[in-house]
Design a protein around this nucleic acid. Structure first.
Ligand code: FES
Ligand code: FES
Lengths: 144, 144
DNA sequence: TCCAATTAAGACAATGATGTCTTATATTAG
DNA sequence: CTAATATAAGACATCATTGTCTTAATTGGA
């Protein structure tokens, strides 16, 4: 089951990696690529998207890298995955029918929409700030 | 967000279609393919898998088709999606890390595993019987 | 100024999921 | 038996995602 795409996974892990660093730090993509075990060029593309989306900011050249564009408590996981995977990530029918909730619902709509709402709420509620905190306190991992 | 694969979507829709018919009826793949708007050959492959998995049974030749292999109240949606997508469908890390729950957890594990369990429980609890009932009573749809 | 480090951008390849087609096999009806 | 109907099996094609590579542009420091 892949709730989010690989691209989103990578984007989240990188964002959490940056959030764990001192505020304002520019982290190089090369370092993240190495520490997180993600292809450098692929990660670059994903972070470019997040930069263009206004969630991160970048600086080229020596001492350059990627930093958060806003305070970590104002960036939610939902912001990130929707920026990468598209804004209607949580809007589709679980059976793949077009227009979930618009036309007649499918047999699973009632049951699925409840779970879906909970998941979306979780993504919305979780900020980089909060997760970075928990990660440090509980020694959680961002790589295999 | 695609919780399940297209193959699973098609398998579920076909199973629900069969469950809505009189018990023991063999429904031809051609009919389902047409009514559900699914490629005939693709649907055939999926139903073969479910047949080999013991959830459906098939009969070749004239008057042949696909039928449920067991009473509709003993086939859960989980049975179907796990048969199609693999048994560890609900076991993966949301960040794609290997060994969810085995090694140190990832920052989202605590939050995600709770939701994941709920979704799996929903799939386990929902039987073809129950959904076919609700579908008939509330005029729900299985196609676009 | 010049060099090293670093992101930006886009072409291109590899992979896996999805979809199509052809041939073989089995069953029923006449 | 024969013809019509239907699934079984597997080769093959298409597509979106993922991953790789090359070149250009920018920045800071020796
Ligand atoms: S119509 Fe299927 S989940 Fe909403
Ligand atoms: S380790 Fe990431 S969800 Fe379990």
């Amino acid at each position: 089951m892949a709730i989010i795409s690989k691209s989103s996974e990578y984007g989240l892990r990188a964002a959490l990696y940056i959030a764990a660093r001192p505020v304002g730090d520019y982290v190089s993509i090369g370092e993240m690529s190495q520490k997180l075990g993600i292809s450098f060029h692929f990660l670059t593309k994903i972070l470019q998207k997040l930069t263009q989306g206004g969630l991160l900011k970048s600086r080229r050249g020596a001492k350059g890298g990627i930093a958060l564009a806003k305070p970590a408590d104002t960036i939610s996981l939902l912001d990130i995955v929707e920026n990468v995977d598209g804004a209607d990530l949580f809007g589709g029918c679980i059976l793949g029918l077009v227009g979930c909730g618009v036309k007649r619902p499918c047999p699973l709509h009632q049951h699925w929409s409840r779970e879906r709402t909970r998941i979306e709420a979780m993504f919305r509620k979780m900020t980089l700030q909060r997760l970075a905190c928990e990660t440090a306190r509980n020694q959680l991992r961002l790589a295999d």
